[in-house]
Design a protein around this nucleic acid. Sequence first.
DNA 1: CGGCATCCCCTGAGATACTG
DNA 2: CAGTATCTCAGGGGATGCCG
Lengths: 138, 138
Amino acid sequence: MNDALSNVNKICPCAVTISLLSSKWKILIMRDLLAGPKRYSDLKRSVMGISQKMLTQSLKEMAADGLVNRHVYPEVPPCVEYSLSNLGASLRPVIYALNKWGKDYLQKSNPAYIHERFNIAVPKNRWLINSERFSNIR
Amino acid sequence: MNDALSNVNKICPCAVTISLLSSKWKILIMRDLLAGPKRYSDLKRSVMGISQKMLTQSLKEMAADGLVNRHVYPEVPPCVEYSLSNLGASLRPVIYALNKWGKDYLQKSNPAYIHERFNIAVPKNRWLINSERFSNIR
DNA sequence: CGGCATCCCCTGAGATACTG
DNA sequence: CAGTATCTCAGGGGATGCCG
């Protein structure tokens, strides 16, 4: 019997998406890769606050899930470039929705409250980004 | 000086949204509340696998963040109803995007792979939902 | 019914040091 | 440069029991 397989169409789509994105880091990596391919060190800089460990681990899992491609240029020193696969790129509307809602929310909220809720409660400057990234996601 | 406040418009909108939704539970709760107000016990049943602790905690935080309203009917036995606030309801496009992508992904993926990735790897039946919920999110 | 309060475990994630 | 390898710890989250 294939109860197991028949259960597949009872899986919650919402939960599947979340599961693939799991940690916040992956979403932030997606956000940055949507602007184009990036090297490991680029990502390390643009995904502010991420550790090498989490960056490596996240990228590895995302590659295993088919969300990103990993391309190694055989040079010295080594150069590794990450880019979105077609599957990964198809997540654009999701990232866009997250970004859109966040922008609206930030605009209509009390700045002092936002500061209190997101600048202090959250460790360090983890949520800050370079302003030029604003234009990347539309 | 108000460096602090001026930093507010450097916060990543994407990250803000994720931060408010944080755990997967909140997203699943949102998903179910989008279909209409629900009692605590309804949510306990529909958000499969959630513990009382996490349900209570999630709802409390979501209420504090202004995403859900809590209404107590002074009866015996007590009855508490949760519903989305306007702010919470405005997240519909986000939940919709997550759901939409997940549905597409499930359809085009190899069922055996999906089973392996989401039915076994993930603890218990946590990701399963009642099929009738599929129509709730459009 | 709709919660709290505890205890406890596991892992997500940071810090640091080392390598091809 | 792009990682790997350890060590460590806070807290996310489960299980259980009690309460108005």
